[in-house]
């Protein structure tokens, strides 16, 4: 079994390009689940023309104030770490967008005036394309928190597709809470970067983050040929394996812009992608022994 999370510090380096091409390549031989965890703007679906097999509405739990028995003791406000519930005079006010669904106010309320109620936050859709299952979660417009939906999506994938050995997760960019949630249960992290000063700066942040999580990492350099060789130098010093160098090629951008797979039409790209696939297969075999 291997859960591989594809992340990056910088946005727009090629997470989705790698995720969709890699998942499809692996699926030529084995069942694969590809999960788009970039719930604020999922886009892997643009490249996977599967058949929809299931759709679920996702909810998060938030407290609802019932004033009848409330003594206005203010304990709810004191225990909330996120300031999502405050006492204003004779009223208790809940801010659903700040609530982290920790249940503290609800559980600790001495008069049970804060029952938790479900609030819709988004939906998860499942597609099938041959050997490939594609799962996409999407936050509703106006929702601010990605973490609860990412957590629920992972849980749902784990339960529903436990028999499928290869799971590829397309993570959100950056190094904040949504990325941590996406990465924290992974067996292996692939960080995609571009060989530019911008790419290197954000790669460093991403590497530090993943090391904090004690995750094994590998680097894929996308658009290799632009910029400079500082990313390679950095990886050598830090002793991080560079799994592949996807070539900078105008045709790759053209295929991407049409929502097409790149490796099927660009042999140089496929050659590099196969190195990544080989690495993941070797991890998976190592895990089985």
């Amino acid at each position: 079994m291997s859960d591989v999370v594809i992340a990056s510090g910088k946005g727009g380096t090629g997470k989705t390009t790698l995720s969709t091409n890699l998942a499809t390549l692996l699926a030529e031989e084995d069942p694969v689940v590809l999960v788009d965890l970039d719930v604020e703007e999922p886009n892997s679906g643009l490249f996977i023309n599967g058949t929809e097999i299931a759709r679920e509405i996702k909810y998060k739990m938030i407290p609802r104030w019932e004033s009848d028995a409330c003594t206005l003791c203010g304990l709810c406000q004191q225990v909330c770490n996120f300031h999502s519930i405050i006492k204003l005079g004779k009223e208790i006010m809940v801010f659903p967008q700040l609530c982290h669904s920790c249940f503290a106010c609800s559980e600790l309320c001495p008069t049970n005036c804060l029952p938790m109620v479900p609030m819709r936050m988004g939906q998860t859709t499942h597609f099938k394309l041959g050997n490939l299952v594609f799962v996409e979660s999407r936050l509703d417009i106006g929702q601010e928190q990605a973490v609860p939906l990412i957590a629920q999506t992972k849980e749902c994938v784990k339960k529903k597709y436990s028999s499928i050995g290869f799971k590829i997760y397309d993570a959100p960019p950056g190094t904040s809470c949504p990325v941590i949630e996406a990465a924290k249960d992974a067996d292996f992290i692939i960080l995609v970067t571009e060989p530019t000063p911008f790419g290197l700066n954000d790669l460093r942040l991403a590497v530090e983050t993943m090391r904090e999580l004690s995750k094994p990492i590998g680097i894929v350099i996308n658009r290799h040929g632009i910029g400079n060789d500082e990313v390679d130098a950095y990886c050598a010093v830090e002793n991080i394996p560079v799994l592949a160098r996807l070539p900078n090629d105008r045709r790759a951008a053209q295929l991407y812009s049409r929502g097409e797979r790149i490796y099927t039409q660009l042999p140089e790209f496929k050659k590099e992608l196969e190195k990544v696939a080989l690495h993941i297969r070797s991890l998976s075999e190592g895990g089985r022994q």
């Binding site: 996120f82 300031h83 999502s84 405050i86 204003l88």
Partner: peptide, 15 residues
């Protein structure tokens, strides 16, 4: 020092 909820917290004080 707090990441989220500064607005409601300050509003509470002002109230």
């Amino acid at each position: 020092g707090i990441a989220h909820g500064a607005g409601p917290q300050t509003a509470q004080k002002l109230f």
